[in-house]
Design a protein around this nucleic acid. Structure first.
Lengths: 350, 350
DNA sequence: GTTAGCACTCTATTGGAGGGAGTGCTAACG
DNA sequence: CGTTAGCACTCCCTCCAATAGAGTGCTAAC
């Protein structure tokens, strides 16, 4: 059972951990509070329910489990899940079949956008949870070419192509009209100035140039810089993600209340908060797990996130993962998220 | 009550229609089967519940209403709703406030894509239903410029700009690699050949040219045609729509069963069937309504669609509308859908 | 440390009972 | 003949009590 270390740090005995593991696994399987009798059988240790009850009482004191009411079994708390995933879990390698599915489906697709979409579908399909993939951000994306085309009125269509083959376009309303040749000249100017440079750098340089108007520069070029500024900004902000399989979350009893579900779905379609959370995973090594309120986003309180970054040439370019109830099958989900990230990375690399 | 016309066509008496109208309005308001006592008060005709009951029995024989069980009130059937929206309904003009909201929000946005998104948000926000907007298809969209850029390996980035200022881009994997200058030459060739022409025509011409290889033409140009073909196709197929406010549908008791809702949400995220239904509205004049199973798509059986096409310069370019339970407030929704379509059209026209 | 036994608590289910809403029918009324 | 009051009937919903079941905590014994 629990022993108190010299420094007041609470510790959990070997055996108690073993019980906790069995309990979490059982609860994940059934979704029902698990009682002492059941657990006694599960552990294989041939102990009586009464003994198990003693251990459970200790685990409850430590805040690792709790019973929903006096005469129900025990359910893991967030802290319980945490201990479980941190030190008790034995991950099952992803099934050969699942890996094969992933591999095949990735092989069918070639462009980045569809790959992202496919990843999120596959994640949700295989795990029966909601899959989420953040769009890749190219840290080392370079300015390649800009094109400025006149539209009707005083609107200009600006198209920016990056070295990664992404195309960003934006309609910009200007205060005066330009002739096609003026625009062409402006585009040439920008291309001469920036081609091959890092997008981030370009953006910085643009900002500087626009502020230091004392640099002598004719009005057209000034204007060109403003146009470029706008489209570069949109290229810099790929703040979007794909979420698939939200409906899978309706299957879980613990989320089944209508209002709960409504909030959850709205949260997912907002995306903003989700992106914010995913952003925090970008630095971390390996699979990252947020359990219940650990995400810090109230609406996901009874959900968990399992995420990992995916890399191209060592550089983290995005994050993917799944969202599901705290009571999800971590043992199965973790390796799937992991392998999906690897395969997506490989596919992006071509 | 009901009288039988000489031709066996079933008719509904003036008074019965009046009752049906009152019943539908009441049912839309409360969502409860409406009984004879309630209805007697609603009509204002100062008749006793017993009389009302007689009329209701007739309406039931005609299949316009039914009672869920022996001792409940009556509920409109699909046929009942149909008669209601076709000849009984008195639409309320959209509230000044709603129109103002629409106007303001549309004024904020300038590019087409965001306008579409905004429309669908606004529709769902104002009606508290799910809003859906089909992307505009430009019947008279012309080829303006094509750009071919080499990527790593044997991949080519093809960018097509249309006269409407839309940018379509696509990564194409070729069987052999091209030098930048070859690609430039190919692009020049295509631009000379097609600039200013209708996209549809371009596509047709491309197909022809590719089939009649006997026209003497060097391999590079052949290949250029294939590239153009691919990107033109993607420009021709804007088969997509925005759906917003799906979660609003969870508020309605009649859709509240979990599995029902799950199917519905999946149907909505599929989009394919929805698009198919919307497609059927493209020809129709004015607001089109599908009630219950009239849409022919089983999963929408207890839903209704209220849609209308929106036009730019007389040409239908898309369809928008809302999806909600059959028991939706048609009187309010219809004019809102109508005015949204007009305002969107105006905004697209700039 | 482990176990059996026991009293206790809480939940979930069941089966009436009663109230309420609304109907259909019939007979009477103007 | 349309309209109405009255009445018996049906069905649903809610409340209530009783019961069975699961699981606990505690104590005392092994």
């Amino acid at each position: 059972m629990a022993t108190q270390s010299r420094h007041g740090e609470t510790q959990v005995s070997e055996r108690a951990q073993h019980f906790l593991k069995a309990l979490v696994e059982r609860y994940i399987k059934d979704g029902q509070p698990v009682g002492s009798r059941t657990l006694a059988k599960d552990t294989g240790l041939d102990l009586s329910p009464a003994t198990v009850r003693n251990v459970m009482a200790d685990l409850e004191d430590l805040g690792l489990v709790l019973s929903p009411h006096t005469s129900a079994g025990r359910v893991p708390t967030v802290a319980g899940y945490r201990l479980f995933v941190d030190s008790l879990i034995t991950v099952r390698p992803p099934s050969e079949e699942d890996v094969e599915t992933l591999r095949l489906r990735f092989a069918e697709v070639s462009d980045a956008k569809t790959l992202i979409e496919t990843s999120s579908r596959l994640l949700s399909g295989i795990t029966h949870l909601a899959g989420v993939v953040m769009l890749p951000r190219h840290e080392r994306n370079a300015f390649r070419q800009i094109e400025l085309l006149p539209l009707s009125g005083s609107r200009v269509l600006a198209i920016l192509v990056t070295s990664e083959g992404e195309v960003h376009n934006r309609v910009i309303v200007t205060e005066r009209t330009f002739t096609p040749s003026q625009l062409e000249e402006a585009a040439n100017f920008l291309n001469r100035m920036f081609t091959g440079q890092d997008i981030k750098g370009v953006r910085k340089r643009l900002l500087e140039d626009l502020q230091h108007t004392h640099r002598n520069m004719d009005a057209l070029m000034m204007r060109a810089l403003t146009l470029a500024q706008e489209v570069v900004e949109s290229a810099e902000r790929p703040d979007d993600c794909y979420i698939a399989g939200q409906t899978n979350l309706m299957e879980f009893g613990e989320l089944a209340s209508m209002e709960r579900l409504k909030q959850l779905f709205e949260a997912l379609s907002q995306k903003r908060e989700i992106l914010h959370i995913l952003d925090r995973c970008i630095e971390a090594e390996g699979v990252q797990i947020f359990i219940g309120d650990e995400s810090g986003y109230g609406l996901l309180d009874d959900c968990s996130l399992v995420t990992t970054a995916y890399r191209v040439e060592g550089q983290v370019v995005g994050v993917l993962g799944v969202i599901g109830p705290t009571r999800m099958d971590y043992q199965r989900v973790i390796p799937i998220v992991d392998v999906t990230a690897r395969l997506l990375a490989a596919a992006l690399r071509q």
